[in-house]
Design a protein around this nucleic acid. Structure first.
Lengths: 210, 210
DNA sequence: CCTCTATTTGACCAATCGGTCAAAGGCACG
DNA sequence: CGTGCCTTTGACCGATTGGTCAAATAGAGG
């Protein structure tokens, strides 16, 4: 039935050494993929960063693509959590502002994840097309309906709700994905994310006030 | 004095055939680099797209990097033109809104250029570091000063002007760079750029009104 | 101690990469 | 028609790539 020889793949991820090595590979893969892109990254480089030999890395993951895929899957949950947390029972404007803040915190604390995602979408999301048109589209549709309801109730300014979501993504991720440019333009003596926090708070407060 | 043998490089770009082939290579390079990234792109692929043999391509450009560099240089002028056009004599709010519109038009009409640029900045802008910290930073500083002046005069809402510029870049380029995601979320029957035009007009009008 | 399985690795491979080179065509112009 | 330059190309090269494999090494359990 199953043609794959048992000896060719590691047993289910249980032992401590397996956990440690898989984690080291994912950490190294994140560092390398996010700074070189999928094609620019090499297995040798990832293995070296993880302090493993290349064949040893391939003992834990069957291919370069598998490492990349595992990273994207891990990423997505954390990435969408802030949007999921949008609470129908909360105060509309404050809910959206809290979402903006959470998303900006993600960009500040996990810029490599942000760049990994950006790289993938830029290439047309060959590893994500299913999720984008599936879970993601559904989640946004759901939350977009909530926003529409709030607008109907006059508790939020009337806006195309999906574009409102886009604007939150664009503005927060920009500070992670284009960090090089942001820092070059601002010059020294700036804390980009702190300033962005205040600015985005102002922006969305003005935009959303009914 | 000049160690480079004259026969090794094409004579100055004059003849019609030179012009045609250099243009074909740049067009092909733009298509390939913007969709595969620098490392993912191959000379064979670019040459095939340009309908040239690989050695023939290398007759016009000395290396893969040279093609990439030429593209980025061509790009920058067009990319910064809308910001340059911000007119100190104009009506502040309308000037900024016109800038937003021009930038969105660029994203709509030249999405490949936008993605090429995004790819480069994402990697830390190894081919652009000079420009980012030089011409770009200077241009933004200049226009940022103009925005500050308008704010001082009470003709524009008080905002951190450089972050205002970032927000314009982020919101317009998002529709080109993340087009895959935008289309997946919106579903069919939408014109992303047309909707974005209206939305961004509203957004910045509310944000900027004194 | 032995044995069985999990882990690690050096050596290796075919494919592809960016780039070179010498020679062959094409073309303008005297 | 012949000469000289511009253009094009097939063949080739060393380096690097993702990935394989058989054999060596650890470790756990008896």
């Amino acid at each position: 039935m199953d043609g794959t020889p048992e000896s060719a793949r590691p047993p289910a991820g249980r032992t401590r050494i397996q956990e440690r090595n898989r984690a080291a590979i994912l950490e190294a893969g994140l560092a390398v993929f996010s700074s070189l892109g999928f094609s620019g990254a090499t297995l040798d480089r990832i293995a070296r960063e993880a302090k493993l030999s290349k064949p040893n890395l391939l003992y834990y993951f069957p291919s370069k693509e598998a490492v990349h895929l595992a990273l994207l899957e891990n990423l997505l949950d954390a990435w969408l959590a802030p949007l999921r947390a949008l609470d129908p029972e909360g105060e509309p404007v404050e809910e959206v502002l809290a979402y903006v803040r959470r998303k900006l915190d993600l960009a500040r604390d996990f810029p490599r994840e942000s760049r990994l995602f950006a790289n993938e979408v830029l290439r047309g999301a060959p590893h994500l097309s299913g999720v984008l048109g599936g879970d993601l589209a559904q989640l946004v549709a759901e939350k977009s309906a909530l926003l529409d309801r709030w607008m109907d109730e006059g508790r939020l300014a009337r806006l195309p709700s999906k574009h409102l979501v886009f604007s939150i993504w664009a503005l927060t991720q920009h500070y992670a994905d284009f960090e090089t440019q942001v820092r070059a333009v601002l010059g020294e003596g700036h804390d980009p994310f702190a300033e962005a926090g205040e600015f985005l708070d102002t922006l969305f407060r003005r935009l959303l006030a009914p």
